[in-house]
Design a protein around this nucleic acid. Sequence first.
DNA 1: ATTGCTGAAAGG
Length: 368
Amino acid sequence: MEDTGGKEMASAEASGFSDLSDSEFLDLEDTQESSPSLGKPGSSEFPKSDKCINLPKGKRDLDVPSPLERFNLKYLYVTDLSTQNWCEQQMVYGKEIPDFLTPEKEAVLNTGASIHLARELEVHDLVTVSVVTKEDAWAVKFLNILSMIPTLQSEGCIREFPVFGEVEGVLLVGVIDELHYTDKGELELAELKTRRRPMTPLKAQKRKDCFQVSLYKYIFDAMVQGKVTPASLIHHTKLCPEKPLGPSVLRHAQQGGFSVKSFGDLMELVFLSLTLSDLPVIDILKIEYIHQETAAVLDTEVVTFEEKEVKSKMQHYMAYWMGQREPQGVDVEDAWKCRTCSYADICEWRKCGGQCSSTLEPQAKRTR
DNA sequence: ATTGCTGAAAGG
């Protein structure tokens, strides 16, 4: 009996795009060629004593499923990539094994989640919407976007804004913590990070968080620039535009003043709202670290968006997902991360001193 | 049956 799984939705105080329909989509494609980055300064690596079968760039043995296929994933979360930035091997184990958190870790995460929820409730109510199909689930996401855009453009602060878009051929999905305009009229993304201990984050932590918010900007900007098309979303998710919306979703859509019938209608409406609401690209990326217990501000980071660096990192991470390279663990200087890693004792990367491709041969493909 | 499928992020 799990079909009544409720979806939470920001209460819509929406204003009306009620009679917008019949749009046409420009199939804008971001077909920029990747810049061939040469040596990366500072990225020390383990010695490659390899006999590894290095497949030519961009190609792979099609008999061997890519990680994306192996895990049956149609898309990735932004946090998958930021976790991958922390330790790729750990992220992979996390996908393979449900991850057994220690009670301490779990408590820290729960506290963080509660703080985020409390802040979300400051700016809108939550409404329960029952969903039956995955189209319904995406429809709720869309209704949230439709209600948040006018709010952002008038009052200011919105929280938990959904984003999605194709990155290096893979659909990436995430939620922006907060968006608002500054007093100077710049669009600012504010990401809150809560910490158990009242200490400033280490560089590795900041690196990961900076990458996370950079991904948000990358995707958000693409969305408002019309680069995220309904067609590409359909392509990746295999969603069905013709599917009628479920009763609960339909009710909330109508309540918000959106005259839509099918999932596709709603998707078109979102595309129009994103591209025609005069939304700017994100100007400022800010991360605030606060102490969980006291809420004291521990550190504030204003992130410089380095497009080329972000893009080359994304390419590197997606190369793993597309099966173009083996996963890597951390460099030796980051081995301290293993101290709190749930998978340290089974980690192949550690066993091999960080150079082997974790399995010599992923086991012969069973042909039949 | 050639079968299905995902709240994202939570912190280190």
